Amino acid sequence: MADQVAVFDGHNDTLLKLEVAERLGRVRDFGAGEPSLDIDLPRAREAGFAGGLFAIYTPSRVNALDQPYDRDDPMNFAPVAQRDALDFTLAMFARLTRLARELPQEVAICTDTAMVRAAMAEGRLAVVPHVEGAECIDPGLNALEVLYAAGLRSLGLVWSRPNAFGHGAPMDRQPVLEPGEGLTELGEILVQACERLGILVDLSHLTEAGFWDVARISTKPLVASHSNAHAVSPNARNLTDRQLDAIRESGGLVGLNFHVAFLREDCRLDHETPITTMLRHLDHLIERVGEGGVALGSDYDGCELPREIGDVTGLPRLVAAMRQAGYGETLINRICRENWLDVLSRTIG
């Protein structure tokens, strides 16, 4: 389509869905099309989804993937052993490597911004590997070095559970945000190591206390790949205005999360959440962070999506809503792609 906008997205869990499905004997075909996924290659092309940070995440139930899933089970947020997390992380990295090898004209693993732009220009899906939750990393940071060599370029210090490096924010409605516990001493060492290597440090899922610990020691732009505005939706996973101001001062970025409970004022899991609610967040984020600091961090294949969005093919509907709301084409392109590429150029190169 002539008015299609190329999108580089800050977060999805598609690799996790592929890995879990195969372990359960339910093979999914990312290349040919798979309706059980939010993103597959044919629909990505249809929607203008040109690339993004693809998450490698170890679920708390990693040793019980065949058990029925209960959303309210506290074990979903239990800590994960480092060895289990490393084994699962390596399996997902191998899956991504095989996918790029099997589809060389369609998928490219990218380790710097020039590679991302080149892949997108060639019509290949530009995948930047991201690890969500640092459980797989040992205290000596040996795994960090090896994962970096394998292509790791973005690291979320925590998911919404504690680990050796820090503490994660709950996914609860908190009108008055509780700061929680921050980084450990090892967490501060990890942040500094990531900055030396050229790995983006992702603040999504961190507690507020952890956010300020990173802000205190970081020399790089503060980035929250998939978080929203707490002033619009008072979920503990969202960012206060003070945090947003700090991100702006650092030249950082926030990626809009599509999860309905992080979008809605009542924080309910209601799929009848209109796209206009997403625009409320974008408006607030632009006001606090500026036009150069707002992007998309959909959380496709890892969240409950608004029905109007549905899956990756909903991206053009979001773009159309931005146009209808008076967003200019330059701003739309910044939100959909250019702001991510700018912050990546200043973090990973």
Rank of each mutant, 00 (worst) to 15 (best):
A2L: 15
V5P: 01
A6W: 15
A6V: 12
F8C: 08
D9C: 01
D9Y: 00
G10M: 00
H11S: 13
N12Q: 10
D13G: 11
L18T: 09
V20M: 04
E22N: 11
L24S: 13
G25A: 06
D29N: 15
G31M: 15
G31T: 14
S36H: 10
L37C: 04
L37K: 01
E46I: 04
G51Y: 13
T58W: 01
S60D: 05
Y69R: 11
D70P: 08
D72V: 00
N76I: 05
N76H: 01
A78D: 05
A78L: 01
P79G: 04
P79D: 04
L90V: 05
L90F: 07
L96K: 04
P104C: 02
C110L: 15
C110V: 14
T113H: 04
V116Y: 00
A118P: 08
A121P: 06
R124N: 01
R124E: 02
A126Q: 05
I137N: 10
P139S: 04
G140T: 14
N142E: 15
L144A: 00
L144V: 00
L144F: 01
A149G: 06
R153H: 12
S154R: 03
V158W: 09
W159L: 02
P162H: 02
P162Q: 06
P162C: 02
N163I: 00
A164N: 15
G168N: 08
A169M: 07
A169F: 09
P170H: 01
M171Y: 02
P175Y: 05
L177E: 12
E185P: 06
G187M: 08
Q192N: 14
R196S: 14
G198P: 09
I199T: 06
V201H: 04
V201M: 05
S204F: 05
L206V: 06
E208C: 11
D213R: 04
S218W: 08
S218Y: 10
S218D: 12
S218H: 13
T219V: 12
P221S: 07
V223D: 00
S225M: 08
V232Q: 11
P234H: 03
A236W: 01
A236V: 03
L244G: 08
I247W: 00
R248D: 07
E249R: 15
G255F: 01
L256K: 11
N257E: 05
V260F: 09
V260N: 02
V260H: 04
A261C: 09
F262A: 14
D266C: 08
D266K: 02
R268S: 15
R268W: 10
T273A: 04
P274D: 12
P274Q: 12
T277M: 14
T277K: 09
M278N: 13
H281Q: 07
D283G: 07
R288N: 14
E291F: 05
E291L: 11
G292Y: 09
G292M: 09
A295N: 03
S298K: 07
Y300I: 14
D301Q: 10
D301A: 07
G302D: 08
G302A: 09
L305C: 08
P306C: 07
G314A: 03
R317P: 06
A321W: 04
A321F: 03
A321I: 02
R323K: 10
G326V: 10
T330G: 15
I335H: 03
R337D: 07
E338L: 11
L341F: 07
L341V: 14
L341K: 07
V343G: 00
